[in-house]
Design a protein around this nucleic acid. Structure first.
Lengths: 196, 196, 196, 196
DNA sequence: ACATTCGGGACCACCCGTTCCT
DNA sequence: AGGAACGGGTGGTCCCGAATGT
C-alpha cells in the first residue's frame, strides 16, 4: 500500500489512522487552507503531541497522505462498481448514481475527495499535487482498462477515460454549487448514450 | 452592468476596481482561504483603509463581487468566441484552445476563475456560492443558446450545455494537476466529434 | 453654559447635540476606550462627516464636552433634590434613592456618568481629566453649601461633602459590580445616621 | 491558592505569571479596553504565542485572572494591616495612608486595582464582573470580620464594612481625578472619627 | 517509542480615529 | 456640513519546534 507506514495491522485504532481519516474528511469539505491542524486534531480525538511524531512533515505531509489514501480507496470503488456487470454503460450509470447519492446525503458537501485540494495547492505544494495526480492517474487507469476491454484501442481508451473522468469531475462541481443532482444526471445520460 | 457600483466610467483607476481584479486573480490561483486580505491589498496597490469602505462585508463580500465579475466576463467571452463563426463545433474547439493556451501561459495556475473558490466555500458561504452558481448559470445559458440555435430542443440543449461545461471544467482540473494540456485536448476531440 | 457653543437655542435638534448625548450615554455604560466613534455616530443618527466640523479635537474633545455637560446636569439635580426640603438627611436619602432607582432601571449600566471615564483616562487625557475634576468640584460645592447651611464651618463642610460624595461614588461601583442596590442602601443608612 | 494553575512554586519566572502581572499593572492604570494584547505581551517580555496556550479564553480570561489575583493580594494586605494592631481606627488609618502613599508615588496612576475595569466591563463581560465581585466580597469579609470582632453584630458589621469600602473606593476616584491626596485624607478623618 | 507541555512569531480578518475635497 | 477615502493598529489564531515527561 502506502509507503508511509503500516496501517495498524490488526491493532487498535491508531492515532495515525485517526489523523488521516479526519484530515481526509475535512479536506474534502473545506479544502486545504481552511482546514486547521487544531481542527484535525480535535476531530480525530488523538493527542496533538502525536501529530509531529507520525507526520514530521507537518500539515503538508498529512494532507498528501490523506489524499493518496482517498485516491486509492476511490480507485478500488471504481473498479468494483464497473466490474460488477458486463455492461459498461450500466456500470458507469451506477458509478454516477452512487456519487450523486453520496453527495445528496452529505448535504452537497462530499464531492470529489481530492478535487478541492488539488485546485487549491496545485501551484503551491508539489507533494500534494503529486499525490493528487497519482490518484487521478489510478482512476484513469481503472476507467481505461474497461474501455480497452470494451474493444477500443489503447489510445482511444485513454482519451475516452479522460473525457469520462473530466465530465464526472465537472458535474460534481456544478452539482455542489447548484445544490442539485441535475448536472450529474445530465452527464450520466449523455455518457450512457455515448458509451452504450 | 453590475449592480454593485459604477465601474469607474472613464474615471481614474478606482481603488474599488483594483481590489476586485487583484482578488479575482488571487482567488483563481490559490482559492479563498489561502488568499489573505493583506495579499490582496498589496497586489492591488490600493490603500488598505479603503477596503472596508468599499466592501463593508469584508472578505466575503469582496470575494463574491470578484467571482460575479469574473463570471460575467467569461460569459461574454464564451458568447464572443462561439458566435464568431457559424460552425458550433469549431467554436467549441476555439474556446477550449483559448483556455488551454491561457492555462499553459500561466504555468498551469489560471484554470477556471471560480471553480476553486466554489468548491472551497460552497458549504460555508452562501453569498459566494450564490455568485458562483449565477456565473455557472450564465455560462450554461450562453452554451445552451448555441445548441438551441443548432436545432436541439430546449431540454436537449440544456442537458448538452451542462455536459459540455462539466467536461471542460473537469478537464481544467485534470490539466492543472497533471501540468499538461492533454486532458483539455482529449475533451476537445471528443466534444467536437460529439457536436459536429 | 459651556463655552464650546450655543446649545441650539430654540433651533432644531442639531447634530452637535445629538453627538453629545449619544456620547454621554455610551461613555457612562462602556467607558472611553470601548466607545467607538462609529458607534457614537450610528447612535446619534447624525452624519459622520459633521463630527469633525463640530469637534475638530476629535474623540477627546467630544468626550470632554459630554463629560462636562453630564457633570453640569447632575450638579443641577443634586441642588434640586437637596433643596426641595429643609431636612438635609432626608434630602440625601432621596438623592441616593433616585440613583439606586436609575441604576436598577438600567440593568445596572447607568452608574455615575463620569466615574468610568475619569478612572480610565485620568492619566492619559488632561482635557477629559480636567472636565471630570470640574464636574466633581461642582458636585462638592453643591453638597458643601448644604452642609454649611446646616451649621458646619467651611472646613468641616468641605470635608463632609468629600466624604459623602466618596461614599456615594464607591457605593455606585459596588452596586454595579454586585448587581444589587444593597451597597447604596447601606451607604444611605450610614449617611443619614451620620448627618441626621 | 488560585485554582487556575500552580503559581510556579519556586520555579523560574513563568510566562504565565509574567502575563498576569503585566496585565494587572496595565489594567489598573488604563482599564480594559485601552489595554492591548500587544502592550501586555511587550511589557511581560513573554512570547505572544504562549499567551493563548496559558489563556485560551484570550483577553477576557487573562483579565479575569489578573483581577482575581489582584483582589486576593489586596485582601491579604487589608487583613495584615488591620490585624497589626488592636486599635481598629488606627488600623483603618494606616490602611488609607498606605493607599495614599502608593497613589502619590505612582503619579496618581495606581488607584484601586480593579475599580476601573469593573466599571468598564460590568455590563459586557460576566467572567470579569464575577472576578471583580468576588474580590470586593473578600475585602468586605476582611473588613467585616474586624468590625464584628470590635463588638458589632453581624448585620451592623456588614453594613459598616460596605460603607467603609465604598468611602475608600470613592476617595480613590476623587483623588486620582484631582491629583491630590485630599479626598483620601478627608475620608480618613471621618472614618476614624466614626469608628473610634 | 510515544505523548504532552510550552514556547514562538507571523499572520489573520476586522475596524479604528482621522482627514481630504467637494 | 458631508460623503469618500486612508493607514495603522486591534484581538485573535495559525502551523510549527523544542524541551520534557512517561
Amino acid at each position: 500500500m502506502s509507503a508511509d507506514g503500516s496501517p495498524s495491522l490488526g491493532g487498535r485504532p491508531s492515532s495515525r489512522e485517526a489523523f488521516i481519516s479526519a484530515t481526509a474528511e475535512l479536506l474534502r469539505a473545506q479544502g486545504y487552507a481552511a482546514t486547521g491542524l487544531n481542527e484535525i486534531v480535535a476531530r480525530s480525538g488523538a493527542p496533538k503531541g502525536s501529530l509531529y511524531f507520525h507526520f514530521p512533515g507537518g500539515k503538508e505531509q498529512l494532507a498528501a497522505t490523506a489524499i493518496a489514501q482517498a485516491g486509492a480507496q476511490l480507485a478500488g470503488s471504481i473498479d468494483a462498481v464497473l466490474g460488477s456487470g458486463a455492461d459498461l454503460a450500466a456500470g458507469l450509470g451506477r458509478l454516477i448514481d452512487t456519487m450523486a447519492a453520496g453527495l445528496e446525503a452529505s448535504g452537497y458537501a462530499a464531492g470529489c475527495p481530492i478535487a478541492t485540494v488539488a485546485l487549491e495547492v496545485s501551484s503551491e505544494s508539489e507533494p500534494i499535487r503529486a499525490a493528487a495526480a497519482q490518484a487521478f492517474e489510478s482512476w484513469l487507469a481503472a476507467l481505461g482498462a474497461r474501455f480497452a476491454a470494451g474493444g477500443l484501442c489503447d489510445e482511444e481508451a485513454e482519451s475516452r477515460a479522460m473525457f469520462v473522468l473530466a465530465a464526472i469531475e465537472g458535474a460534481l462541481i456544478l452539482a455542489r454549487v447548484r445544490r442539485s443532482p441535475a448536472p450529474l444526471l445530465a452527464v450520466r445520460e449523455e455518457l450512457v448514450a455515448l458509451v452504450g
